[in-house]
Design a protein around this nucleic acid. Structure first.
Lengths: 109, 109
DNA sequence: ATCTACCCATAGATAATCTATCTATCTGGC
DNA sequence: GCCAGATAGATAGATTATCTATGGGTAGAT
């Protein structure tokens, strides 16, 4: 059974970093944002999201801060760091390179 | 360490199936073809290639036949089956869908 | 003879994602 | 008052895919 994943593997960290360029967000908000902007195509499961955020924290690409949300809940807000921004740039250009290469193979009749 | 893979995970099977739409090829030839057409960007390691070919055989998406190469070696030639062709169609449209969705997220300033 | 390119394949490590599960609070409908 | 559903966080375990490393072997050129 062709098991379709909700994401293209290897792209989640990039998507999260990109999402955080607009504004700091908590995890749940990041998932909602990606889902909404992708027209519901990209579904970030919690079991993918939170481990990914831990990775990004460990790498120092984001930092986290506990705050109150507008709806008065406690939540952990993630902010892109300067090295995170650099990393995003690297990942974006590598992604472009890959997609261009894959497209060449797929177009070659 | 941002460990860059030689492939975008989740795309190898599709690349192999696509490569076989042109003509039956042996494993080594598939790897060379993908590498060449992608301008050396996509490097299919043997440890990725042969397990992938086993998967495709198991699924019935390709079939294999031992033959002699033009250079007089024995090699296993893989041919795309009819269900393999259908599968490729599915994977291509799913890939397009994913890329379009990711692009929306990455473009959203 | 030995080196390089050609060819197949598996084992084990690594990484990323998913499913499933758990905790907890807030809001709205009944 | 109570319950469902949305909001919010996190981890364990299974699954899958890739890479690294290794093994086997042949053909042709030097």
């Amino acid at each position: 059974m062709a098991k379709k994943s909700d994401l293209l593997p290897g792209t989640l960290d990039m998507l999260i970093l990109k999402t955080l360029t607009r504004a700091p967000l908590h995890g749940y908000g990041i998932a909602l944002s990606i889902k909404r902007i992708s027209d519901e195509v990209l579904q970030v499961e919690e079991g993918s999201l939170y481990p990914a955020l831990q990775r990004l924290l460990l790498q120092g690409w984001v930092k986290a801060e506990w705050k109150q949300t507008e709806t008065n809940r406690r939540a952990r807000y993630y902010t892109l760091t300067e090295t995170g921004r650099k990393q995003l740039g690297l990942e974006l250009s590598e992604f472009d390179r890959m997609i261009a290469a894959i497209t060449r193979v797929l177009r070659e009749a």
